[in-house]
């Protein structure tokens, strides 16, 4: 287990190098740079532009030189300053990565919390009304575009006033709140975006859980368990669930990655200050240090998600040993 963890952590290093290098290649390969828009400005002289490009090492098209400038900074712990915000990239990313994590965890709780019980219920009551309703729900969840669903939820919030239409927390009274009130306020703001994100994932996991459970319930060892005279409840939860949930744990690693990168639209519609918007904005204006640092963070979180899935898998299934 220890060697496994160590190896996985060491494996992150070449992965990050590869991912950031490819990102650098793509940034150079796409036309223009951060200062391209500034060059349109009448107050900008060509000399000034050249000076700025040289200062930020944008004056060469050589990938290796550009990448080395970035990497040598990173090796000394300096991820650079955002071109746009003129502050250290970490000060920008720090809070946002937490916000994104919060949204991802909220969405995961909603999607898994609904998907697993509904999936089990559908499998046990296969072809019943409950199964059909759950199937219909997942059909809606799978087919509804997240932009539309997000806007629908914003409309719902605006019309009923039950939920805030966006943002991370209350803008006016935030500074006067007790820690508990702050917590409740954030959860209240989190609810709708997490529901949107969670519903989309939920549909898929529920279908998967149902299929896995039906498959598991037809296994020989389930028949053995029944032949011992065990109750349906014991057969389901002690004998079937642990086996059926196995492939879903693997999915969990992927879903985490999806939530980190795919939350952009939801973050945008709900004005949720997360990594998605920051990264996409940075990409559009080619704020290179910010792009690179975001990529590093998302890579680390992705690997962490998969690592968590691997550890969970080993905890559930004794045939898997982490070595």
């Amino acid at each position: 287990m220890k060697t496994f963890l160590l190896r996985r952590f060491l494996a992150i290093v070449p992965l990050i190098l590869a991912v950031t290098f490819i990102t650098q290649v793509l940034l150079i390969a796409s036309p223009g740079d951060y200062f391209s828009t500034l060059s349109e400005s009448p107050s900008m002289t060509p000399e000034r532009l050249e000076f700025l490009r040289a200062k930020y090492h944008l004056d060469t098209e050589n990938v290796f030189i550009r990448y080395w400038y970035w990497l040598s900074g990173v090796l000394t712990g300096d991820f650079g300053y955002s071109f746009k915000y003129q502050t250290s990239v970490w000060s920008l990313i720090g809070d946002r990565i937490l916000n994104t994590l919060l949204l991802a965890v909220g969405a995961l709780l909603i999607s898994w919390g609904l998907a697993i019980p509904l999936g089990i219920l559908s499998a046990v009551k296969k072809d019943s009304i409950v199964d059909r309703l759950a199937g219909g729900l997942s059909f809606v969840g799978l087919s509804i575009p997240s932009v539309f669903f997000s806007l629908l939820m914003v409309l719902f919030a605006a019309k009923t006033g039950l939920f805030p239409v966006g943002g991370l927390h209350d803008q006016v009274y935030w500074d006067f709140m007790t820690p508990w009130q702050k917590f409740v306020d954030v959860i209240w703001h989190l609810f709708l975006p997490a529901t949107v994100l969670g519903t989309i994932g939920m549909a898929q996991y529920m279908r998967q859980m149902r299929a896995e459970m039906i498959e598991t319930l037809s296994q020989d060892y389930i028949r053995t368990a029944k032949a011992k005279g065990l109750s349906l409840r014991t057969v389901l939860f002690r004998h079937a669930l642990g086996n059926a949930i196995n492939p879903l744990i693997t999915l969990f690693g992927f879903s985490f990655a999806y939530l980190l990168s795919g939350a952009f639209i939801t973050e945008f519609v709900f004005a949720w200050p997360g990594m998605g918007r920051l990264t996409v904005d940075a990409l559009i204006i080619k704020d290179e240090p910010l792009v690179m640092a975001s990529i590093v963070m998302v890579t680390v979180m992705l690997v962490a998600g998969n690592l968590l899935a691997d550890i969970l898998l080993a905890a559930v299934d004794p045939r898997i040993r982490l070595e």
Binding site: D220, Y221, R223, R238, G242, P318, R319
Partner: peptide, 9 residues
């Protein structure tokens, strides 16, 4: 081979 539950001792 398949009649014992793989995840229980």
């Amino acid at each position: 081979m398949t009649s014992l539950n793989p995840i229980l001792t």
